[in-house]
């Protein structure tokens, strides 16, 4: 990847993380860990990959994304705001009564949100439906979905996986945000779906394993996916809470907002990271 683009994406992803922390702090609730872990994936998709137009959020030939792990809404909102779909000021209204920024994505009112999601396991099926629609009606757009590694314990995910392969939906690419933690503990402790890649392989998907924080690898995986005549699962190994030292790999930050002091620390770390990138 071009070094300038890479640096620009790294800066953007850091801004996105700042938006995640600020919005969750303002909401006094939300899911920082899993938002921070998928921030790089979403940043790459919206800033370097997808055919979208923030000025025309509903253009019919746009690529679609379903945030199947809907609790990572702060990451999607921060990406959309930074991309210009709406003002970054709006991020501070996250989860507040009267705000369009619902606790989980709402396609009716939030510019850029292609599908309402939040009830785990349903988003991938909706993405499959979008991919089926594109294929059936001869439209060329691509469909992306981002799933959690805990989410794939839902049986519906595998119903969707079976169908997508059976119907040859090569216009569908799914990321699994493999951060290793879910609310009740590590995925191994709770009910591990590992080996995730072999499961998608067995469902007749093409599977790619990457570091979900490495833009070169995200880019290469998406390039590889485009040439494959099957649905593609990109198993992205990530760090839950990535970018905020005290949140990294700590399950307690799955669904808790930082207080003022910890927010200040998180923002200091992220601003320092931004400075390092200059």
């Amino acid at each position: 990847m071009d070094a300038t683009l890479k640096k620009s994406l790294q800066k953007t992803a850091t801004q996105v993380r700042i938006g995640i922390i600020e919005s969750i702090h303002s909401a006094k609730a939300g899911h920082p860990g899993g938002s921070l872990s998928c921030a790089d994936i979403l940043t790459y998709l919206y800033f370097a990959h997808m055919n979208i137009d923030p000025k025309d959020p509903k253009k019919s030939d746009r690529d679609r994304l379903v945030l199947s792990k809907g609790h990572a809404a702060p990451a999607l909102y921060s990406v959309l705001a930074n991309r210009g779909y709406f003002s970054t000021d709006l991020l501070l209204t996250l989860r507040k009564q009267g705000s369009i920024l619902q606790g989980h994505p709402d396609m009716k009112y939030i510019p850029g949100v292609d599908m309402s999601s939040g009830s785990l396991g349903q988003g991938i099926s909706c993405a499959v439906g979008m991919a089926l629609s594109a294929k059936h009606f001869g439209e060329s757009y691509k469909v992306y979905a981002v799933l959690g590694d805990g989410e794939i314990e839902e049986g519906q995910v595998w119903e969707a996986a079976m169908f997508a392969a059976n119907k040859g939906l090569s216009n569908l690419t799914v990321f699994v945000d493999y951060n290793g933690l879910q609310i009740d503990g590590s995925i191994e402790e709770v009910n591990s779906a590992a080996p995730i890649d072999k499961k998608f392989d067995a469902f007749n998907w093409h599977t790619i394993i990457i570091d979900g924080h490495d833009f070169d690898q995200i880019e290469a995986a998406l390039k590889e996916a485009e040439a494959i005549d099957k649905p593609v699962a990109i198993i992205a190994k990530t760090v839950k809470g990535k970018g905020v030292s005290y949140m990294e790999n700590n399950v307690n930050w799955h669904g808790a907002a930082p207080n003022d002091e910890l927010t200040a620390q998180a923002l200091a770390e992220l601003n320092e990271a931004l400075k390092q990138l200059d």
Partner: peptide, 9 residues
């Protein structure tokens, strides 16, 4: 949910 996805397009 697939039906919902189709309708969303």
């Amino acid at each position: 949910s697939i039906a919902a996805g189709v309708a969303a397009t």
